[in-house]
Amino acid sequence: MTAVIEAVGLIKRYGPVVAVDDLNLTIPSGEVYGLLGPNGSGKTTTILMLLGLTEPTAGQVRVLGNDPSRNPLAVKRQVGYLPDSVGFYDELSARENLRYTAELNGLARDDAETRIDEVLTRMGLRDVSTRRAGAYSRGMRQRLGLADVLLKRPQVAILDEPTMGLDPEGALEFLDMIRGLKADGITVLLASHLLHQVQAVCDRVGLFHQGRIVLEGTVDALSERVLGGAYRIHLEVDGQAQALEGTLSAVPGVVRVMRESPRGYLVEAKSDVRGAVAHRVVTAGGALLSLRLERLGLDEVYARYFQEVRHEG
């Protein structure tokens, strides 16, 4: 696997404000990488530097082996970019909007029409392609944006807040489409602040905070590292539930046991220990009423991490 995107010591300052601070990023080919963090944490600035639309103050960037600030055309020919709340020429139809993109990419007319049909069909917009882009709903615009990205048959797709403003169903649908890009072998860089939405599609994530990537890895690895136990098991036990806390803590892999209510326990574990926990409860004479596994997501990871950072500070 070769690195498709590589950034070393990337810095961007706007006057006294540091937008991106010593960023190191390596994304191998075929990966879906999530650049996650709150608004204003430097995600978009990073993306603009990767595309050569903003010049870095310091540091090195390589995208597909090219320096974006020196050879932006070669980069932009192979990298598709879906901007944050993408805009179209409202008075033109969806097809005409795509046609313009095709022309800017220097595609021959026949080739362009074939590709436009292809991407419109793929995004489910074929039937409404003659409608004005201004009449499109938010979800349709976003899909048209992805069609616009796919038109140039990119090797890398950079998507900025792709699910923002979509209803839950639309967001899931869109995430499915992103999975489809991965299946096509397209490397995807995803920037978002909606951590819980995008964690499902990302191979690896980098958590952004004030221009730095503070945590990086797979979602599971991050929860393991920050939360200790990545698995939370909620128990409801009836009967003589006196000494259960001790019993449960003895289960291998359990990190912490807390009593949530007279009948409820919360077990944090490093692995899925539901079987062992249930067994212990029953052998201890308790009546197990319910047992529920809660997977912790990036939201908790993020929240917990910054809690700790603040505590240390």
Partner: peptide, 14 residues
């Protein structure tokens, strides 16, 4: 204002 600028400039043109 139409938010088309970044999309257009991300195409291979200067």
């Amino acid at each position: 204002n139409r938010r088309t600028l970044s999309r257009v400039l991300s195409q291979p043109i200067y």
